[in-house]
């Protein structure tokens, strides 16, 4: 299994940090104007959540892996629920590379693989280097074309 780029942790962490900060601020404001238990309630919650976020992001990063097998793209991820997905190349409809603003900031990119299936109709591999993402996309495209049963030898 190939691991993701390690800086994807920072990218996930930043998103979580913003959420934690907002939650902390809401609790702080609630305490200030309504509850008045202790001014430390909001910051305390934020610190606890922050620790959880660090642990979770680290665990998520460790759980992530992808591999190009003979017949299928294999993905493995998930902390609480671990999910393994096999996407046979012959079922790939199209492949995207995507780079959001945050991705670009960290020099990352993602590959999205679409199938016609109802569940997991699109699988995303985040945290790749832009070149790596492009190569993976091209490789998947070639594999999808090769595996077309009518054209295979």
């Amino acid at each position: 299994m190939n691991a993701l780029q390690s800086r994807v942790r920072a990218r996930w962490g930043i998103v979580a940090l913003v959420v934690v900060a907002i939650l902390g601020a809401i609790v702080f404001a609630l305490d200030r104007f309504v509850l008045s238990v202790s001014p430390l309630l909001g910051p305390g919650l934020a610190v606890v959540l922050l620790v959880l976020v660090v642990v979770y992001v680290q665990a998520l990063y460790r759980s992530w892996g992808y591999r190009l097998d003979d017949d299928a793209l294999e993905l493995e991820r998930g902390v609480i629920t671990s999910v393994e997905t096999a996407v046979p190349y012959v079922r790939v409809q199209h492949v995207d590379t995507q780079r959001g603003p945050l991705d670009r900031l960290f020099g990352l990119g993602r590959v999205v693989v679409y199938t016609a299936g109802s569940r997991g109709a699109d699988v995303t591999i985040p945290g790749l280097e832009p070149n790596q993402a492009r190569e993976l996309r091209n490789r998947l495209r070639d594999l999808a074309i090769e595996s077309e049963p009518e054209d295979a030898v």
Binding site: T81, S82, T85, V123
Partner: peptide, 9 residues
């Protein structure tokens, strides 16, 4: 078959 998914909580 489109995809095969195995999941464990």
């Amino acid at each position: 078959l489109q995809t095969v998914i195995r999941r464990r909580t």
